[in-house]
């Protein structure tokens, strides 16, 4: 069902944000189908394997649209997780506290 843990997390976040009223479900379906169309237009074979990529892209777009966060904040946070992942010894859980540039 979920091939990797991140897919499950992305799935659950969409449900949680909907439950909290951040967006309506029709709004979600519209955003998801728009991402799928965008990906198809960009050459994605759309065989279902990349489904949660589209799901995550739709989620990121909707939270920005609803002012929950901003693209620069998302970018900065990805960079922080990336630094933290590189600074964490193999086999240890990655946390943001391991970001060498973190506060």
């Amino acid at each position: 069902m979920f091939r990797e843990p991140w897919e499950a997390q992305a799935f659950a976040m969409a449900l949680a944000l909907h439950k909290r009223g951040v967006f309506t479900w029709p709004e979600w379906a519209t955003a998801l189908s728009a991402e799928i169309r965008r990906a198809q237009a960009a050459g994605d074979p759309d065989t279902g394997q990349t489904y949660y990529h589209h799901w995550l892209a739709a989620l990121e777009r909707l939270v920005v649209q609803h002012g929950v966060t901003t693209p620069p904040l998302l970018d900065a946070r990805r960079a922080a997780w990336d630094r933290a992942a590189r600074a964490t010894p193999h086999g240890k859980p990655i946390t943001l506290a391991n970001d060498p540039e973190g506060a």
Binding site: E4, Q9, V22, L56, T69, R77, R78, W81, D82
Partner: peptide, 26 residues
């Protein structure tokens, strides 16, 4: 993808939009 999900989730948790335990239950 994993970093993107972690980035989004950590922001949502900080702002109080999602609870990691509730995500696990879902």
């Amino acid at each position: 993808m994993d970093l993107r999900v972690r980035a989004l989730e950590s922001i949502l948790v900080e702002k109080g939009y999602v609870d990691p335990a509730a995500l696990d239950v879902l």
